[in-house]
Design a protein around this nucleic acid. Structure first.
Length: 537
RNA sequence: GCCGCCGUAGCUCAGUUGGUUAGAGCGCCUGAUUGUGGAUCAGGAGGUCCCCCGUUCGAGCCGGGGCGGUGGUACCA
């Protein structure tokens, strides 16, 4: 019999890896973007908004499979023979295209900032989405390390501008040239060693997670993890592995050198306090420099640079890298950005293949708890570096560039988890509807509030059940409700119900007490605006 | 991609050795109460038990396959 026809309904669900952002989430992010843009602008960078869609060809050769370009990116073809199009996966590749296209009209160096969503077609995870915001600043057209130093300084200013206190973050700087020098010493500089270099790079990047032995395994035969998955190794010889491991353990070695210096000083009858403090100016787990104290961190940087010089030996490129790091440190010091905030850290490599010089990364040094109360490793909130070959793809000419990218969503999540951002929604004042035929009066009250700059609205739902109107106001997080029945209207007054106070009383007081004290005041209509202004203050 | 765990109401989950009509809490809706939020009380709506095949007189439960989710790992321009 009239069995209900099965209607196939669409699932009301955002696609995997995507989500919706409500109210405060949107306004908070906008406030953060504005704060970041203000700093970028102050440093002389120009705004740029480029298209969200690019041709796959322009986006780059970083796609693993030309026949299936939607691996990792959202890409499509209009028809069989048409060009592949894709949503941008970062803001750097589009910048290279924009600069190449408009280079005759743009100043050199070209300094621009850009912000907006980017898309990646990858497996989503907790706190990891397929659409997220980036906020970048880049300088195109100069090879000077002063550009790199400037970006590091600006990154420090930016983090402080969005509410991260000095000491709650550290910016780590390294140089790909140092790593390339090490690879050269290990005999991995040939064009045919591309694959090995990639594995080495990624292995070093995982030091903090896999530990020294894990990295060593990846450099050699490979590594089988607890989940049963096997990762292919680079298959290097023992001598090669030990060269690279010396580099990998550079931070630990720096600690040991400082330790020895301290004991030597003490055995000679000196205090050795600077050496001891420098020894401890690092994360106890990873031995990565942690900033925080200018003198000891500076001392540590000097030791690290000296050690790096020894590792790269006679490699020209390696020595160049060490020298650039020294220059950057000096430039930053001169501007007042000491090693308490920006440190030299050889363990920073960044996974991306396109970096050619200095690379940098910003990390938060305070603990962040997740919803289960566990302390969670937050990783980096911003990163960047020098990429001298990206524009060359278009022009054929060498166009050096350097820049930084801030992961805005991550930064927001960290600040929210830390309680630095107040998430309690603040709703509008609700003008309730007591008499349905007096809507015009209510709208008029509401209009007066709006003219005075008070966020307000008239209840537009079904006014039959008055209780529902207050429930609505409650759900909106409204600070107050305005009530005016026939009685009040005749006397030219309104009832103002303080919902925040009321809710507080409801928790503490008994039912009877609460009913008797409705946290409500009668106010003359003419006094309503000043009354509310005082209440909302 | 690989490995493990999971899939029952909007949410969190029970569900006995395989047995009739699948339950609870929370949430939602209606009413007690068309002039007052919380609480209480009464009532109500809401399910292809992820899908398919098989075993069985009989499957939410057993077997096989698929799909989906999740955690780890790999990749991440």
């Amino acid at each position: 019999m009239a069995k209900k026809e099965k209607i196939r309904r669409p699932k009301a669900e955002a696609p995997k890896g995507f989500r919706d952002y409500f109210g405060a989430e949107v306004t908070e992010r906008k406030a953060m973007l504005d704060a970041i843009a203000k700093v970028y602008h102050l440093y002389g960078f120009e705004a740029l908004e480029s298209s969200a869609v690019e041709t796959v060809e322009a986006l780059g050769k970083f796609l693993p499979d030309v026949d299936r370009p939607n691996e990792g990116v959202f890409a499509w073809q209009e028809d069989e023979d048409a060009e592949w199009m894709a949503l941008r996966y970062d803001l750097t590749a589009p910048l290279a295209r924009v600069y190449a296209q408009h280079r005759n009209d743009l100043p050199t160096p070209y300094r621009r900032y850009a912000m907006g969503p980017v898309w990646r077609n990858e497996k989503p995870g907790p706190g990891r989405f397929r659409q997220f915001y980036q906020c970048d600043a880049d300088t195109v057209g100069t090879a000077s390390v002063a550009a790199d130093a400037e970006i590091c300084a600006m990154l420090a200013d930016t983090l402080e501008a969005v509410g991260i206190a000095r000491g709650d973050y550290v910016i780590r700087v390294n140089n790909r040239k140092v790593l390339n020098g090490v690879l050269e010493v290990a005999g991995l500089s040939g064009d045919d060693k591309e694959r090995e270099r990639g594995i080495v790079l990624r292995a070093i990047d995982k030091l903090d997670r896999l530990g020294v032995e894990g990295v060593r395994a990846l450099l050699g035969a490979g590594r089988k993890d607890e989940s049963g998955d096997f990762a292919d190794g680079a298959g290097l010889k023992d001598e090669q592995i030990s060269v690279i491991m010396t580099f990998v353990q550079a931070n630990e070695t720096a600690t040991r050198i400082l330790e020895k210096a301290a004991t030597d000083e003490i055995s000679l009858g000196f205090g050795g306090s600077n050496q001891i403090r420098a020894m401890y100016a690092a994360d106890p787990q990873t031995q990565r420099p942690a900033g925080g104290d200018s003198v000891s961190s500076g001392y540590r940087s000097t030791v690290t640079l000296g050690h790096l010089g020894e590792i790269v030996g006679t490699s020209i490129i390696g020595l160049e890298g060490v020298s650039e790091l020294k220059q950057i440190a000096n430039l930053l010091e001169a501007q007042g950005y000491g090693p308490d905030r920006i440190v030299i850290d050889p363990s920073v490599v960044r996974g991306l293949g396109y970096y050619t010089g200095p690379v940098y990364e910003a990390e938060l040094t305070f603990d962040v708890q997740n919803d289960k109360g566990q302390t969670v490793q937050f990783g980096s909130v911003a990163g960047g570096g020098r990429y001298d070959d990206l524009v060359t793809r278009f022009t054929g000419q060498a166009v050096p560039a350097t820049g930084v990218s801030i992961g805005v969503d991550r930064l927001l999540a960290a600040l929210t988890a830390k309680g630095r951002i107040d998430r309690t929604p603040r709703g509008p004042v609700i003008v309730t509807v007591m008499d349905r035929d007096r809507m015009a009066d209510y709208q008029s009250i509401c209009a007066d509030l709006r003219k005075a700059g008070i966020r307000a609205e008239v209840y537009l739902g079904n006014p039959k059940n008055f209780g529902n109107q207050l429930k609505y106001a409650d759900k909106r997080g409204s600070p107050a409700a305005i009530i005016q029945g026939t009685d009040e209207a005749a006397r030219g007054v309104v009832q103002v119900k303080d919902l925040i106070l009321g809710a507080k009383l409801a928790q503490e007081a008994s039912l009877e007490e609460w009913k008797e004290n409705p946290s409500q005041s009668e106010v003359a209509l003419s006094d309503l605006v000043p009354f509310l202004q005082k209440l909302l203050a």
